[in-house]
Computed example of a mutant assay.
Amino acid sequence: MLLRTIPRERRDMLGEGLLWSAREDAVYWTDILGRRVNRLRLADDRVDSWEVPGTIGWVIEREDQPGFIAGLDRRIVALTLDPVTVETLADPDRDGNRMNDAKADAAGRIWAGTMSMDGEGPSGSFYRFDTDHTATRVDDGYRIANGPAISADGRMLFHTDSGLRTVYRFAADEDGALGPREVFVRFEDGWGDPDGMTLDAEGGLWIACWGAGRVTRFTPEGKRDRSIDLPASQITNCTFAGPGLDRLFVTSAADGVDEPLGGALFEVDPGCRGAPTHRYRG
């Protein structure tokens, strides 16, 4: 099975926020604690990196405008990279918190979770950021809000509290209203902690397993299906990429560990195809 470490000069303190850009044929990701946005061009494996003025959890492409929407510190901002510019669009969260992970849905909205800077207290929330730049808190009480993933039809949304080692599931309406929070999977001992997530074309949920050095697929029924081991323990996020959506890229973290490949970006062969990436329509 393919397992490739992407060659580059630096490692991420806390890699996160993977994004497949079909229009650029590139993979973007963030280094939250290193305060950077990174880009891998698939055509030639070139990696570029931009320093930004704050902790940055995620970037999501805009549909009809240049640049990105990003989670910077506790804010939701409009971000460009050449040059780096920042415009605050919403500042909905509590003092001492920061943005952690997010995804766009097929309607062009963004779903984003927050957490405290130390990840200790249940001060994190889950937000819906609509195309009119309105941020609405849709759930609360998270220690480490992580890994939104949204079904292809937009009717099912998955969200995680890594601190509780639990993946939740919500039914979603067309207008963005969520049903009750339900437990989808509770991680068992030895599985690590659930982190970033992505869905494949068959509805399987791929979860980065922090502390366990792997990504694991769960069936739509919540059954642990298969795992791919990686040469770093702190695995943080995963996304399908490439024109066929058949390449799986995986981020990791170097912060707090002494590992040769901690903080590296990996590519593995998942043996399946992913679901398309959506852009923000505001």
Rank of each mutant, 00 (worst) to 15 (best):
R41T: 12
S162N: 08
S116I: 01
A90F: 11
W111F: 15
I6D: 08
D101R: 10
V27Q: 06
T30G: 11
D175L: 10
P53N: 13
G203C: 08
I144Y: 02
S123M: 04
F158T: 03
D140L: 07
G71W: 05
L205Y: 00
W111N: 03
N237T: 14
S162Y: 03
F184T: 01
V257K: 13
I150M: 07
N38K: 10
H278P: 06
D269I: 02
I60T: 05
R226F: 00
L81T: 05
A201S: 15
R155G: 09
M99W: 03
R98C: 08
C209Q: 12
V77P: 02
L40P: 11
G17T: 08
G282D: 08
G124S: 12
D132A: 15
A145Q: 03
A177N: 13
F68Y: 15
E182W: 03
R74Q: 14
V86D: 08
G263I: 14
G121L: 13
A106Q: 09
G121C: 09
L2T: 15
N237V: 04
D269F: 00
Y280H: 12
D91K: 05
V183W: 11
N100R: 08
W58H: 03
D173R: 13
R217T: 00
R128K: 09
G154S: 12
G96K: 08
Q234S: 12
D139Q: 07
A90P: 06
A106M: 09
N100A: 08
D255N: 14
W20N: 03
V86M: 10
R226E: 01
V183Y: 13
D132G: 14
T55N: 11
R128G: 07
V185D: 01
T5H: 13
S162L: 08
A145M: 06
G244A: 10
E174N: 07
A107I: 01
L178Q: 09
E24W: 06
E61F: 05
F249D: 04
S162D: 06
R279F: 09
G282Q: 06
L3I: 14
A172M: 15
G163R: 06
P276E: 12
F129S: 02
D153T: 10
A152C: 04
F249E: 07
P260I: 15
I144N: 02
N100S: 09
R62F: 09
P122T: 13
N146H: 05
I56Q: 02
P148M: 11
L18R: 02
A241Y: 02
E24M: 07
M99L: 14
G192A: 13
C238H: 01
D25H: 14
A112H: 14
E267A: 05
S151Q: 06
L18T: 14
H159K: 05
T277N: 06
L205V: 00
A208I: 04
D64M: 09
E202L: 01
G192E: 12
A275K: 06
M1E: 02
D269W: 00
R23C: 13
S125A: 15
F218N: 02
D153F: 11
R186N: 10
V257M: 10
G176E: 12
D25E: 14
G262N: 11
I6K: 07
D161T: 13
D200Q: 00
Y168E: 12
Y127R: 10
R74L: 11
L42W: 03
E61C: 07
S116E: 12
R109C: 14
